[in-house]
Amino acid sequence: MEDLVAGLLAGKVRSLAKAITIVENDLPGKREILKSIYPKTGHAYLLGITGPPGAGKSTLTDKIIAHLRREGKSVAVIAVDPSSPFSGGAILGDRIRMQQHALDDGVFIRSMATRSHLGGLAKNTVDVIHLFDAAGKDVIIIETVGVGQDEVDIVRIAQTTVVVMVPGLGDSVQISKAGVMEIADVFAVNKADRDGADKLLSELKAMLDMIKDEVKPEIFRTVATDDVGIDELVAGIFAHGKRVEESGLIEKKRRQKAENELRAYIYDMIMERAQGLEAYNDVVSRVAAKQETPMDGVEELFTELGIRIQEEKNAEED
């Protein structure tokens, strides 16, 4: 395990790849690895790319990688694709668009399946980010699954979130809905050479005009397949990062991220212990049979685990 960590910190591809496997699959050694590398994290720029399926996220990512490489930055990509809800398997195909970088030592691409995790990312995405960060990658791009409206986890992780839009997916009501549309720090209107791009652009602008925030997301037109608009987009991304840094929001974001990581682990660790209790299956049966509310079930399990619950006495008195 020490060799693995040393190799990872020295930027060895195989060590990093093996460490990711351990972390992704919650295999023995995960905690030790994360403990050794955690103090060395916090330097990479985390860039989220999200948007509906087929919007061109992977192609755009490919072109952003190329741009960053020309600037001499090392890049890691986490490309998330959905797992089948039926078989648990997955086809991870985002890499197809990025294979021109396969032989570049400065680019490390890793595919992850969601494994039925909701929110647009894979369950252990954050831990994999830590590994890339500790390995000294300058920029880590996280490409979410193709999202619909509510998969917004990426915003809690990335410094800058790019929402990729394409013409022809819906009218202005779609644009004014909540969720994915609200998390953009930067919009990329991709396939901007197609019919409807101007309309989409003006609708986006109209939506943004209604936002009261002092810092509004910038909109960029791109045609990723032809490498059009990428330089401007990347400049816009880092300009956003700089604004966040200077506004002091960054500290708030860091705390938010820490809280989110803690929350995820509190859930996982308590759940694991609860499932290990003998009473667990009985509680599930009683809740399923409507003999007990889920909250009462949780209290029973918590009592067994030695976790005290504050009673809501006042609310119950009438």
Binding site: F86, G89, A90, I91, L92
Partner: peptide, 10 residues
């Protein structure tokens, strides 16, 4: 995939 494996296709 249908057999539950994770497949990378390049």
């Amino acid at each position: 995939r249908d057999a539950g494996m994770e497949v990378i296709y390049t």
